[in-house]
């Protein structure tokens, strides 16, 4: 064995086959996810699901559809926060909202909404700014269980302190406690916040554009994709946005190296908020 031709790693071969099986059997496409993270998540799944190997996991997955939901929970779900990175929401409030006010009706897409923390954050922000009634929010994810959780709007009470702190730092005009009731160890958010929200299954890897958007918020999703899939996703955003529509990415995500960079202008550079150029 030498450096140029390392012995193939059995785990890596199995992972490739497992992801192929997942795609061909269920049409969930993780083949262009960044491999290092997906491997960590699969190792965790293998252990917690009590499988001796990824091949054993693949066997169960192919023959028992109920394994799909279990595996998806390891591959997709992540814990977020309401008003995560408060300065992002402050920038939306102070810089983006004034532009959005000029439209009689608005469409907002939260792509990769996971358990919905950001959906409720944006609904509150738009309510505070008086735009909620003219807005439709599309909250999409590939994990049905996450979508259900998002639709339920129930979060552990021990997270509320952090959510409240973030909400205040975002330049809030109201108190977070106006929006939920505590029930033992849970905080149940006001169902009226989701009156204008459409929760829907949508994959940035395999699905296409579904509506014309004024604002797309997709944060800490692209980092899980390889360069090819990042390009595909940003292409969808580019296609979806109205002229001069807005795209918000995660704190450490950027269009700088994207093929689509020329189609966007920095709007609030440090918050990774972009504006689609006129074309």
């Amino acid at each position: 064995m030498n450096d140029e031709t390392p012995e193939p790693d059995v785990d890596d071969i199995e992972i490739e086959l497992l992801l192929e099986a997942l795609y061909r059997r269920y049409h969930y496409d993780f083949r262009h996810y960044a491999r290092a993270s997906i491997k960590r998540r699969l190792i965790q799944a293998r252990g917690r699901l009590g499988m001796a190997s990824f091949s054993a996991l693949q066997d169960r997955l192919l023959h028992e559809p109920e394994m799909l939901a279990k595996l998806l929970n390891y591959l997709t779900v992540q814990v977020s926060e309401m008003f995560r990175d408060p300065s992002y929401f402050r920038a939306l409030r102070e810089k983006v909202i004034p532009h959005l006010r000029t439209y009689p009706s608005l469409k907002v897409w939260i792509a990769g909404c996971s358990n919905g923390e950001e959906v409720y954050s944006l609904a509150m922000l738009f309510r505070e700014e008086g735009l909620e009634q003219r807005t439709i929010f599309y909250a999409t994810d590939i994990n049905p269980k996450a979508l259900k959780a998002a639709e339920a709007g129930v979060y552990p009470l021990d997270q509320i302190r952090k959510f409240t702190e973030n909400h205040q730092k975002s330049g809030a005009r109201t108190s977070l406690s106006d929006y939920y009731v505590a029930d033992y160890d849970r905080a149940i958010f006001d169902s009226s916040l989701r009156a204008n929200v459409v929760f829907s299954d949508h994959s940035l890897a395999t699905d296409s554009v579904f509506a014309e958007m004024h604002l797309i918020s997709c944060r800490n999703v692209l980092i899980y994709f390889d360069r090819d899939l990042q390009e595909r996703a940003v292409g969808l955003f580019d296609e979806s946005l109205v002229r001069r529509g807005f795209l918000g990415l995660g704190r450490k995500e950027s269009l700088r190296f994207s093929d689509h960079a020329a189609g966007f202008a920095d709007f609030v550079r440090e918050e990774k908020i972009y504006q689609r150029r006129e074309r």
């Binding site: 960044a34 980092i223 390889d226 450490k252």
Partner: peptide, 14 residues
């Protein structure tokens, strides 16, 4: 993280 091709990758996992 380091990807198989040697590029750097970030993650917001737990």
């Amino acid at each position: 993280l380091v990807e198989p091709d040697g590029s750097m990758a970030l993650s917001a996992d737990d």
